[in-house]
């Protein structure tokens, strides 16, 4: 295996409380290889988003990433970056689709302005150049360029989702984090978006960290899967193994609690 694009080592994250601290992530370690589709599953509240936020260091107090944790992106420890380096690192190397991607576009800026933001800050592009690039990116997700002048509220939920993905691809990141990007969408749109991501991933070569509590969906799209339970990573294995012969008790229970809707369809191609 080539050097991992993301390598998390002994990650510990606390939420500091007035009296007691709450450890949301307990000594988690895992790797994601370049171009790999990695799934992170676990029930609600087990700490998935907390890990995702830590990779780009987006946490706000009272979250605290404990000393001793390491988050290596391309071999560089993100936790050692200073303010400026961190700013340059964000979005260029790791982009992220948020849990409620529908609400992650700024309601008072046009779509174009939200592309320009990124392209100007990181690449110093002019408005015209940014507009062209933005139109190209929108084409990747099948959105006509005239939507650039629109405001987020004028686009449907699925459209907004795809726009966010297009913004994510603006700088050719090495890693795309998707935190339950599809929970608010209906099943058809959900599947369509995941397939599109899969196609783009193969074309552009980025890795994906995909988070959900829908294990069935995850098995269909992921190469490898990590299972989380109350802040701990209890099992990491390739998708087939997780599906056919889960090792950990909790994974088995997780499967047992899943409605067997997905049958044997394991790869997205099969379901399409």
């Amino acid at each position: 295996m080539s050097a991992p694009v993301l390598s998390i080592r002994n990650l510990n994250i606390d939420y500091i409380g007035a009296e007691a601290n709450f450890r949301a992530v307990k000594d988690v370690s895992f790797d994601i290889a370049p171009g790999e589709f990695f799934g992170l599953a676990g029930e609600s509240g087990c700490g998935k988003s907390t890990i995702a936020f830590a990779v780009s260091r987006l946490h706000r107090p009272p979250a605290l990433i404990r000393t001793g944790s390491e988050i290596l992106v391309d071999g560089r420890d993100v936790l050692e970056l200073d303010k400026d380096a961190l700013r340059r690192f964000r979005w260029r190397e790791v982009a992220m689709v948020f849990q409620s991607a529908m609400n992650s576009l700024n309601p008072v800026l046009t779509i174009e302005a939200q592309f320009y933001d990124v392209l100007h800050t990181h690449k110093g592009m002019s408005r015209e150049a940014a507009r062209e690039r933005a139109a190209e990116l929108l084409k990747l997700v099948d959105i006509p360029p005239d939507r650039l002048a629109a405001y987020p509220h004028q686009c449907s939920g699925g459209m907004r989702q795809r726009i966010v993905i297009a913004i994510c691809l603006a700088l050719n990141p090495k890693l795309l984090i998707m935190d339950e990007p599809t929970t608010a969408l209906d099943v058809v749109v959900q599947r369509e978006i995941l397939q599109r991501i899969d196609v783009l991933r193969k074309r552009l070569g980025f890795a994906v960290l995909f988070i959900t509590h829908d294990l069935g969906l995850m098995v269909q799209v992921s190469d490898r899967i990590g299972i989380m339970l109350e802040g701990e990573l209890v099992e990491v294995n390739d998708a087939q193994t997780i599906y056919r012969s889960p090792q950990h008790d909790y994974t088995k229970r997780l499967w047992a609690s899943m409605p067997k809707l997905h049958g044997d369809q394991i790869r997205p191609e099969a379901g399409a």
Binding site: D14, H59, P61, L64, I65, R66, T67
Partner: peptide, 11 residues
């Protein structure tokens, strides 16, 4: 803030 000052962690 105290814990950050003491170097017990960061954001």
């Amino acid at each position: 803030s105290r814990m950050v000052l003491l170097g017990e962690g960061k954001l």
